[in-house]
Amino acid sequence: MLTIKNLHAEVDGKQILKGINLEIKRGEMHAIMGPNGSGKSSLSSVLAGRENYTVTQGEVLFDGKDLLEMSPEDRAREGLFLAFQYPVEIPGVSNLHFLKTALNEIRTYHNLPALESKEFLKLTKEKQQLVDFNANLMNRSLNEGFSGGEKKRNEVFQLAMLDPKLAILDETDSGLDIDALRIVASGVNKLRSADKAFVVITHYQRLLEYIVPDFVHVLYNGQIVKTGTKELALELEEKGYDWLKEEVHQKESV
C-alpha cells in the first residue's frame, strides 16, 4: 500500500531524513520507535505534506500513486490520515461542521454525493460510540479548551469518521494517563481491518501492550536502523537505545 524508497528530506537546510526505506501492506500494524530527534515526527510530516519540509531524494508510492506530488488535502482524500502529536485548536469552527466539511470534500473527490444531514448524524453517533468519544465535545469548537487526552481522543474519533486506508498516529500516547491510553488504544484496535494499515509512532513500549504491532522499526539519525517484531519493543524498553546507537556507530566506522 505504501512504499517508501530512499527518502531524504530536510527542514531549514538541515538534513533530517537520510534514506528511509519502508514497505507497508494492507492489514499491517507498524510501530516506529526511536530516541528524541531521530526523525520520527519528521517522517510523518513529510508523508502528510507539511510545507516546511523539502524532499531532496527518494520516492513514496501510495497504492501506486506518487504521494509526494500531491497536496496535503489530496493525500487525505486518497486515504492517508495523520493523527497529530499536537492537535490544533481552532476557535469558531465547530467539531461537527469541520468533520462534515472534511467528509464531504473527500466524498466529492471520489465522485460521491455529499452525505445528507441525517446520514451524517447517524454516522457520527455510531463512530462516537465506537471510539468512546464524549458526545458533548462534538458541538464545541474544534479542540478549543479540550484537555490533552480529549484532543487525542478527538484525533481517533476523526480517524474513525474519515475511514482512511492508512493512518499514522504520531505520538498519540504522549500526555495520556493510563485510562485514556486504554480508551485510545481500544478505539484504534476496533478500527483495525484487513484492508487498512496503521503506523504508530511512539517513544514508549507501553502503548504497544495495547496496540500490538506486526513490525517494530527503530529510527535513528534519519534512518531505519533495525526492524523486528513486538519483541524488539520489549528489548528497547529494557535496554534503552544506547546499545543500538553503538551498533550503528560501529557499523559506520567499519
Partner: peptide, 12 residues
C-alpha cells in the same frame, strides 16, 4: 491551523 484542516481532506 491551515495544514490541520488540509490534512483532513479540506481544500485550501
Amino acid at each position: 491551523a491551515l495544514f490541520y484542516l488540509r490534512s483532513r481532506g479540506i481544500g485550501e
